[in-house]
Write a protein that binds this DNA or RNA. Structure first.
Length: 636
RNA sequence: GCUCAUGUAGCUCAGUCGGCAGAGCACUACCUUGGUAAGGUAGAGGUCACCGGUUCGAUUCCGGUCAUGAGCUCCA
C-alpha cells in the first residue's frame, strides 16, 4: 500500500501501482474527466503513470500551467502527425508547448502558405476525431537512431545523438505516427477539443543563425471551443492597444521611411516624454543623484579604451571630423566616466550618483526593429554610481527600490532576470564572481524572485534586468542594474581613501525606464492610450454648444491655462455629440461643455471619458478636482 | 541579417484575369446654432513604395531595391 497526500492535505491509502487517473477518479468523477496529469513529488506524471511509493500528488487540469503544457504538447504532436500525413517528405525538428500555445518546426522544400495551413488544420481535426491513443515506449540508443534513420528524420537522429549517455530514450506513438519525445502527454488525441493554427514563421534549427532556417507553425489549443474563441478575441482586443496603432491614431509619434528605427516625436508625444522626464528628475534629486549631459559624438580612441571597440563595434555608428575618427555613442558610460575623472575624489564624496538622459544610437538588425520598443536611437534614463566596494549592496538595493517604486506607480507587473558572464567579455573570473554574488545578495535582501539568464550579461559585468509586458504579453527589458569592475580599471578611476592612498571605485550602470521610447511604448499599451491625467497630452477639452458662448469658453480656457492645465478648445460649428465623440476617441480625460445655461450661472458641465456626465460645478471646483488627480498621479 | 507575407488618397481598405483608379472617415466651402459618442450639400486630394524588364500599352506580369508586419537571431 502507498500513502498519497493530496493538495488539500488529506492522506489516502491506495494499492501500490495505482495510476494517477485512478486517484483522480477516486476523488471525483468530475475531476477524472478534466484531469490531464498530475504533479507527483514535484515531477509531472501522465494519467496512466503508476505510483509505487508514498507521494504528494496534485491532479493537474487545464487551469494549471503544467496541465496546459501537457495538453499543448500533445497538440503539437497532432500538428506533426497531420503534416506527415499530408506531406510525408517533410522533416520534423522540434515541437514544444509554449506560453499560450505550441509550435512545431518543419523542414519542407516548399513554402507553407495560408492554404496549406488550412489544409493541415483540417487534417488535425481528423486526427482529433479519430481519438488516437498515445502509447509510450523506450528504445536503446542504437535502435532509436536506427528507427529515426529509417524514417528519414535527420533532425531527430541529431537530437538522439546529443542526448546524455544515461538518458532513457522515449517515443510516443499515436496511430501511424511516432515521435521522439520525453513527454508527458495526454492519453489520446480526442481530448483536444479546440485547436487553431495561427501563423508560420522562419526559425533557425536549434536557434543558431548558422543553421538552416526551418518553417515554424504556431498554434494554440483549448479544452473548449469557447475558450479558444475567448483567446482569439483577446488577441484581437490586444491588437487595438498596439502602441504603433495608437501612436498614429493619437498623433504621438511616427516612424518614417527616411529614418527606419529613428522615431519622430509629435507635440502630443512630447508632452508625455517631458512629463516622464520631469518626474524622473524629481525622484532622482530626491534620491541623491546629480544630473549630467555628455556628448553624442566622441573620439574613437575613447571607445578603444572602454572596450566597446572590441566588444560592441558591430552595433556602433562612426563618423569622421577633420580627418579624425569619431564614434556616435551607443552607451553613456564612457562620457560619465570622463566627468568623474575630471577631478580628484575623496571617499567622503562616495557614492557619487551621476544621472544622464542620454541619447544613444545602436545599429540594431533591420528585422529586429519594432515601433518604439526596439529602435536605433533612444534616450536612456541612465545613471552611473561610483562607490567603494563596501557600498555595493546598499547601492544596488537603492536602485531596486527606486525601480520598484516607479513600476508600482504605473501599476506595472514586472519580472526580474539575473544575467551572468557572457562568452565575449572582459575581466577576471574572480571579479565576475564577486560582482554576480553582490547582485544575488541584493536581490535576496530585496526578497525579489528572479530568473537566471546564464551568459546574457553585459561585456563588462553581470546585470539585473527588469522586464515589462506589452499588450500581447511579449516582455521587454526596461530597467537594468549592471555591476562593473572593468571600466574603473580601464579608465584608472580612483578615489582617495581615509588612508590618504588612491583606491579603485566600483561602478553601477543603471536605468529605470530603460529607454524613454520603449517605456512610452509600454505605457501606451498598458493604458490603451487612455493616459492618467498627469500624463495626458490634452487634459481638458472645452466645447461650446453655440457661438453664443465663445467668449465664455475663452475665459475658462485662460483660467485653466493660468493653472498650467493642458487645455484645448473646440469652437467648431458642430453638434455637441459630434465634438464629444471626437474628444472621446482622443481619450481626453475631461471634457467641459458650456451652453447658455452654464454661462448664465457661471459654471461648467464636466464630462469624464469613462464616468460620463458628472454634472455642473464651478471652475474652481473643477480645478481642485483635476489638480488633485494630477498631483497625486492618480491612475484614472 | 535570415524566412515568409505586405506596400493603392492624411487614415482604414476595395479594385484592375494588362487598357488613362474607387469607398468610408478626415480635410475645405456653404447650409444648419444644434445640449452629452457621427446633421446636410458640394469640393479638393493619388507618378497605385522606388528602380529596371516584358508589352502597342504596366498600378496589375517578371527582377531588383527600400520600408513595414510575424517569427528567428540580437538586445534598452
Amino acid at each position: 500500500m502507498v500513502n498519497i497526500r493530496l493538495k488539500d492535505g488529506t492522506i489516502k491509502e491506495y494499492e501500490s501501482g495505482v495510476t494517477v487517473y485512478e486517484i483522480a477518479n477516486d476523488i471525483s468523477g468530475g475531476l477524472a474527466r478534466v484531469a490531464l496529469g498530475a504533479t507527483v513529488n514535484g515531477k509531472t506524471f501522465e494519467l496512466n503513470d503508476k505510483i509505487e511509493c508514498d507521494s504528494e500528488v496534485s491532479i493537474l487540469t487545464f487551469n494549471d500551467d503544467e496541465g496546459k503544457r501537457i495538453f499543448r504538447h500533445t497538440s503539437s504532436h497532432i500538428l506533426a502527425q497531420a503534416v506527415k500525413r499530408l506531406y510525408p517528405d517533410v522533416k520534423l525538428a522540434i515541437g514544444p508547448a509554449i506560453e499560450n500555445g505550441f509550435y512545431y518546426d518543419f523542414d519542407a522544400d516548399f513554402v507553407i502558405t495560408q492554404e496549406i495551413l488550412d489544409k493541415i488544420e483540417a487534417e488535425m481535426k481528423k486526427v482529433i476525431k479519430e481519438d488516437l491513443k498515445l502509447e509510450k515506449f523506450y528504445l536503446p540508443r542504437d535502435e532509436a537512431v536506427k528507427f529515426m534513420e529509417e524514417k528519414g528524420e535527420p533532425y531527430k537522429v541529431e537530437l538522439i545523438n546529443d542526448l546524455q549517455e544515461d538518458a532513457s530514450i522515449s517515443f510516443y506513438k499515436q496511430g501511424g505516427f511516432t515521435d521522439l519525445c520525453a513527454g508527458p502527454h495526454l492519453q489520446s488525441t480526442g481530448k483536444v477539443k479546440a485547436i487553431k493554427l495561427l501563423s508560420v514563421a522562419g526559425a533557425y534549427w536549434r536557434g543558431n543563425e548558422n543553421n538552416k532556417m526551418l518553417q515554424r507553425i504556431y498554434g494554440s489549443s483549448f479544452t473548449k471551443k469557447s475558450e479558444l474563441d475567448e483567446y482569439l478575441n483577446m488577441l484581437e482586443e490586444a491588437k487595438k492597444r498596439d502602441h504603433r496603432k495608437l501612436g498614429k491614431e493619437l498623433d504621438l509619434f511616427s516612424i518614417q521611411d527616411e529614418g527606419p528605427g529613428f522615431p519622430f516625436f509629435h507635440p502630443k508625444g512630447m508632452v508625455i516624454r517631458n512629463e516622464l522626464e520631469s518626474f524622473w528628475r524629481k525622484i532622482h534629486v530626491r534620491n541623491g543623484y546629480k544630473e549630467i549631459k555628455t556628448p553624442i559624438i566622441l573620439n574613437e580612441e575613447l571607445w578603444h579604451r572602454s572596450g566597446h571597440w572590441d566588444h560592441y563595434k558591430e552595433n556602433m555608428y562612426f563618423t569622421k571630423i577633420d580627418g579624425e575618427n569619431y564614434a556616435i555613442k551607443p552607451m553613456n558610460c564612457p562620457g560619465g566616466i570622463l566627468v568623474y575623472k575630471n577631478k580628484m575624489h575623496s571617499y567622503r564624496e562616495l557614492p557619487i550618483r551621476l544621472g544622464e538622459l542620454g541619447l544613444v544610437h545602436r545599429h540594431e538588425l533591420s528585422g529586429a526593429l519594432h515601433g518604439l520598443m526596439r529602435v536605433r536611437n533612444f534616450t536612456q534614463d541612465d545613471a552611473h554610481i561610483f562607490m567603494t566596494p563596501d557600498q555595493i549592496k546598499e547601492e544596488v538595493l537603492g536602485v531596486i527600490r527606486l525601480t520598484d517604486y516607479v513600476y508600482k506607480l504605473f501599476g506595472f507587473d514586472y519580472h526580474v532576470e539575473l544575467s551572468t558572464r557572457p562568452e565575449n567579455s572582459m575581466g577576471s573570473d574572480e571579479d565576475w564572481e564577486h560582482a554576480t554574488n553582490s547582485l544575488i545578495e541584493a536581490l535576496n535582501a530585496a526578497k525579489l524572485e528572479y530568473k537566471l539568464n546564464e551568459g546574457d550579461g553585459a561585456f563588462y559585468g553581470p546585470k539585473i534586468d527588469f522586464h515589462l509586458k506589452d499588450s500581447i504579453g511579449r516582455t521587454w527589458q526596461c530597467g537594468t542594474i549592471q555591476l562593473d569592475f572593468q571600466m574603473p580599471e580601464r579608465f584608472d578611476l580612483s578615489y582617495i581613501g581615509p588612508d590618504g592612498e588612491k583606491h579603485r571605485p566600483v561602478m553601477i550602470h543603471r536605468t529605470i525606464f530603460g529607454s524613454i521610447e520603449r517605456f512610452i511604448g509600454i505605457l501606451i499599451e498598458n493604458y490603451a492610450g487612455a493616459f492618467p491625467v498627469w500624463l495626458a497630452p490634452v487634459q481638458v477639452q472645452i466645447m461650446n454648444i453655440t457661438d453664443n458662448q465663445i467668449n465664455y469658453v475663452k475665459t475658462i480656457e485662460n483660467k485653466l491655462l493660468d493653472d498650467d492645465i493642458r487645455v484645448e478648445v473646440d469652437l467648431r460649428n458642430e453638434k455637441i455629440g459630434y465634438k464629444i465623440r471626437e474628444a472621446q476617441m482622443e481619450k481626453i480625460p475631461y471634457m467641459i461643455v458650456v451652453g447658455d445655461k452654464e454661462m448664465e450661472k457661471g459654471v461648467v458641465s464636466v464630462r469624464h471619458r469613462k464616468l460620463g456626465d458628472m454634472g455642473t460645478m464651478t471652475i474652481d471646483e473643477f480645478l481642485d478636482m483635476i489638480n488633485q488627480k494630477i498631483n497625486g498621479k492618480v491612475a484614472e
